[in-house]
């Protein structure tokens, strides 16, 4: 019954968002797509290459190696940070004057810029003058992260755990605080053990925030660049060259814009795919 009214002025209202999204996401993305299917020379000369760069990247051993490094790194830090974060959140006080002290202490690492974190840990871990490096060597362990791959990995992981476990702690703590006290009382009256309280009350109630924590940590760690770049520069050799570092080397170091663009798109799709898998797996029970 109602007649459709046409009002072209509505476009004016949507326009700011359209322009913003265009400049901020669509145009840059399309530029990358443009580069990924062409060969570029100076003076803006382009040659059509089709899927060649994608095939090159997918078959390149160098890409495989950095992808594997990236997956291992992300896997290890998730396996450490999530359980550790939950454990710390469980031990934090629920009320009283210590709450704010704990929260501020926990939030501190999150406030430090990536670059600074890298520089801090670099100096901290130097075997000749760094507090950590000197201490480890003092214990009789030969440790030099600028030369030993194992030491470099250890330091990078330790730095990431130090920097980002707080995020998991804060999210898990928020989840814990939202559980009404009555749940704990009910469990006590039922005679439930400490483990049962964790397994059947705290964990299920934290599920949503933990999903967010895992997703955030996954995405962030998969894109990690600044900290390892400042700490190790991707070395020794290229043992800590993660995907982002490798990408920058290809794009800006070698100026291979085509392969770099193709790699960016593949990189983006991997993150998207893995995030989707994580989300679906963790939310699977919720849907039923």
């Amino acid at each position: 019954m109602s007649e459709k009214t046409t009002n072209q002025k509505a476009w004016l209202l949507v326009a700011p968002v359209v322009i913003l999204v265009a400049f901020n996401a669509l145009i840059p993305l399309m530029t990358v797509v443009n580069y990924s299917v062409q060969e570029t020379f100076g003076d803006n000369v382009f040659f059509w290459e089709g899927m060649k760069w994608f095939e090159d990247v997918l078959h390149s051993e160098r890409f495989h190696a950095s992808l594997l490094r990236q997956l291992s790194f992300t896997g290890i830090i998730l396996a450490i940070e999530v359980p550790l974060g939950v454990a710390i959140a469980l031990t934090m006080p629920k009320k009283g004057p210590w709450v704010s002290v704990c929260l501020v202490l926990m939030a501190l690492p999150l406030l430090i810029p990536w670059n600074v974190v890298g520089a801090m840990w670099n100096i901290f871990a130097l075997p000749d003058i760094g507090l950590l490096g000197k201490m480890i060597n003092g214990l009789g362990i030969d440790y030099n992260f600028t030369q030993q791959p194992m030491a470099a990995w250890f330091t990078t992981i330790l730095m990431d755990v130090w920097h980002w476990t707080s995020l998991v702690v804060l999210l898990a703590y928020a989840g814990l605080c939202s559980i009404p006290d009555a749940y704990y009382q009910a469990a006590r009256i039922d005679g439930a053990s400490r483990w049962a309280v964790f397994r059947f009350i705290q964990l299920p109630k934290m599920k949503r925030v933990l999903t967010i924590a895992v997703l955030l940590r996954f995405m962030d760690s998969f894109m990690i660049y600044t900290e390892p770049f400042v700490l190790t520069g991707g070395g020794p050799g290229n043992t800590t060259t993660f995907l982002s570092i490798d990408l920058v080397k290809i794009a800006l170091g070698q100026f291979d814009l085509g392969p770099a663009a193709a790699m960016s798109l593949i990189y983006f799709l991997i993150i998207l795919l893995l995030s989707w898998i994580f989300y679906t797996l963790m939310m699977r029970n919720e849907e039923q």
Partner: peptide
Amino acid sequence: VQKRNVSMVYQQFINYPNMTVYENIAS
């Protein structure tokens, strides 16, 4: 508490969130 054989029901609806109704009652 657990030795007193008491049970308590609250104003909020308190059940184990990831157990079925059957498991909740059986707990």
